[in-house]
């Protein structure tokens, strides 16, 4: 083998090693891995993707009880074929997993006449012992900051997760459920929630109002998914 060919081989191998040398970040990897699902996806994508990947509920349908909590005076009502009833302060309802529900928030303190139409995306369910399903609903909490931010035109994303008891925060829970962990814009709330427990629902509060056009109604109400009313015993 001549000297030039040896030199050529050396140059080629050196070039190959340079092209194969990876960025250190690629080797170490991001701490969160490659997130297939993120918290800023459109409403319904996370639940629908999860359903389509084999985690769907076999029929018949299970209605996961949820309970809406808000500041004093705030009333909630779920959409029923495109219309809303008057609303209750602590509304309880059974929602289907994998669906997105539009509900109405009225009676916002110091915002007379203002209405908000947030969505709740049901990602996963709970597994209570028999007979305890309605005693331990998934709490959907909205506080005053959420409502003000939404009325100002911002989008509030709340990822509700089931806390891992091993790593639960040792703080007592407030009367309106747990205090929210605020994450900055560049962080993914779904990823943070996934580190701390099992994501069950995603609440998005924006400032969108119902469309007037009949054609857009179905899109606005995400296909009018059915829900089961839960009546509380009268005191």
């Amino acid at each position: 083998m001549s000297r030039t060919s040896v030199l050529l081989l050396l140059v080629i191998s050196a070039a190959a090693s340079i092209t194969q040398a990876a960025d250190p970040r690629e080797i170490l990897g991001a701490p969160g891995g490659h997130a297939l699902l993120t918290g800023d996806m459109p409403a319904g994508v996370v639940a629908a993707t999860r359903q389509s990947m084999g985690y769907q509920q076999p029929p018949p349908t299970y209605y996961q009880p949820v309970e809406f909590h808000g500041p004093e005076g705030v009333r909630f009502s779920l959409a029923q074929y495109g219309s809303f009833e008057e609303g209750e302060s602590n509304l309880m309802a059974g929602l289907m997993i994998g669906q997105v529900y539009r509900f109405r928030v009225t009676g916002i303190p110091q915002q007379a006449g203002a209405e908000l139409y947030p969505t709740i995306e049901m990602v996963d369910r709970t597994y209570p012992p028999p007979g305890l399903a309605t005693s331990y609903p998934i709490p959907i909490n909205l506080d005053q900051n959420d409502l003000i931010a939404a009325l100002e035109g911002r989008l509030v994303t709340r990822v509700i997760y089931l806390e891992d008891p091993q790593t639960a925060t040792p703080l007592p829970e407030g009367p309106n459920g747990p205090a929210a962990i605020d994450v900055p814009e560049y962080q993914d709330p779904l990823e943070i929630a996934d580190l701390r427990g099992r994501t069950v629902a995603i609440l998005r509060i924006g400032s969108l109002a119902p469309p007037r056009a009949e054609v857009l109604q179905s899109q606005f109400f995400f296909g009018h998914p059915s829900w089961a009313p839960i009546f509380k015993p009268q005191p």
């Binding site: 989008l155 509030v156 994303t157 806390e163 747990p178």
Partner: peptide, 15 residues
């Protein structure tokens, strides 16, 4: 049996 739920909130700002 005592499930406890947490919330992670992000307020997306730009207007």
């Amino acid at each position: 049996y005592s499930p406890r739920f947490g919330n992670v909130r992000r307020i997306t700002g730009a207007i």
